[in-house]
Simulated assay, not measured.
Amino acid sequence: MRQPVEFGLDTFGDVTVDDEGVRLSDAQTIRNVVAQAVRADEVGLQFFGVGEHHRREFAVSSPEIVLAAAAAQTRDIHLGTSVTVLSSDDPVRLYERFATLDAVSNGRAEVTLGRGSFVESFPLFGYDLADYEVLFEEKLELFAQLLAERPVTWQGSKRAALERADVFPKTEHGIRAWVGVGGSPESVVRTARYGYGLMLAIIGGPAAQFRPFVDLFRRSLDAFGHESQPIGIHSPGHLAPTDEEAWEQLYPALKANRDAIGAERGWPPYNRMQFQRDIGPGGAVYAGSPARVAEKIADTLRTLDADRFDLKFSNGTLSHEHMMRSIELYGTEVVPRVRELLA
């Protein structure tokens, strides 16, 4: 039988501002992320994910350290990444770090692997962007073997070969691993080939457009002889007691974030019309009152037959206080409503 749907939160550790609009320090932002994880645990959520970035807008470059701090202050919530940039990391060291996190959290560690939609880590750690695809393919294969926690013999073109290498520490029950996918069929099939869970990053357009990827993933798992693997959804959003409050809090923060990134990528400035499309029924932003957001999440979960929904609750310069209130509403009001609607 299918397990009940899980509900989680994701943050990239966006550097925020205080009530006077003054930018917080990176250090304070990181401490706030730990406090947000504690609040998520208190309101009964199943997962808290922290993304890895290496640029000015985001404070977290070492998610595992932040998650270890959160593990010391939480009891039940699973802790993981959203995502780890595997292409510019070493799979052996990555496994060791997460096995250690799994130990200190008493079996609550998860990892979501990605190629990286931001590429600052490649030159930072000495990787050639021309190797973008082959780095991810080879490291994904190696990490899948490491997860079996047996001696590994492996050879690729971008890393030293391994001959019956045994890696420590061992975990007590294994590590749950996902691959973050933005919407290419090749990525979906690759995720199924290695038997990872599929985390769909739906950050634009209607969720229904991803249904073919869900079906492809399940067919591919069968074709590769793997057992069923979970399917998750990662999408941005924000909660407040009323729709108007949520939208007025979110829009300037989201605009600041989109415009900063868009200036590098050639996007036009974000505007109110685009925001209205994003928060509407066919958009990928889950913002508004608990009732509105619950209905939209339930519709998405039904459409995609997914196993988990992670709300990306940090959005640009949105304040820590607004995010803490959003977490509380998500856990205490949205999740129970969604469960009722799905039932």
Rank of each mutant, 00 (worst) to 15 (best):
L304F: 03
E149S: 08
R2N: 06
P4T: 03
A343D: 12
L254F: 05
R219Y: 02
A207V: 12
L140A: 15
D41P: 06
A201Y: 00
D128F: 00
V167A: 08
H54D: 05
D299L: 05
T332A: 06
V167R: 02
S87N: 10
Q274A: 15
R23N: 04
A287E: 02
G80L: 07
K158T: 15
K312F: 12
S25R: 02
A109T: 07
E340M: 05
D128E: 14
L45S: 02
V111W: 01
E295W: 00
P123R: 14
R115W: 05
V5W: 02
A148M: 11
R292F: 07
T112Q: 15
V188S: 12
G126D: 04
D131T: 09
E138R: 11
A287T: 08
L162E: 05
P63Y: 10
F48Y: 13
G331K: 09
F224W: 08
T171H: 10
S220Q: 05
P268R: 13
A201V: 07
L342T: 13
L129T: 14
F213W: 06
R97W: 02
S62L: 09
G331T: 10
N271Q: 06
S235L: 12
L113Y: 08
F122L: 13
A298G: 10
S184A: 14
V60A: 11
T81Y: 02
Q229N: 12
L124H: 00
R219A: 15
L221I: 06
A103P: 00
A71G: 08
R272S: 07
R190L: 11
D278W: 01
L86G: 04
E110M: 14
L198P: 03
V15I: 15
V111F: 04
H322W: 12
F125S: 08
T16N: 10
S228L: 08
D166W: 01
K170E: 07
S117A: 13
E42M: 07
E244L: 15
S319G: 14
A246M: 02
V179S: 11
S319R: 15
L146T: 10
V189E: 13
A69N: 00
V15E: 01
E120N: 13
S25I: 03
N315C: 15
Q155I: 02
G44C: 09
T100H: 04
G195C: 09
T191Q: 07
A177K: 01
F58I: 01
S157L: 10
V189W: 05
G44D: 04
R31N: 12
R193D: 02
F143M: 09
A192K: 08
L311K: 04
R115E: 06
G183K: 07
S117M: 11
R308L: 10
R176G: 09
N106Q: 11
E96V: 03
R115N: 06
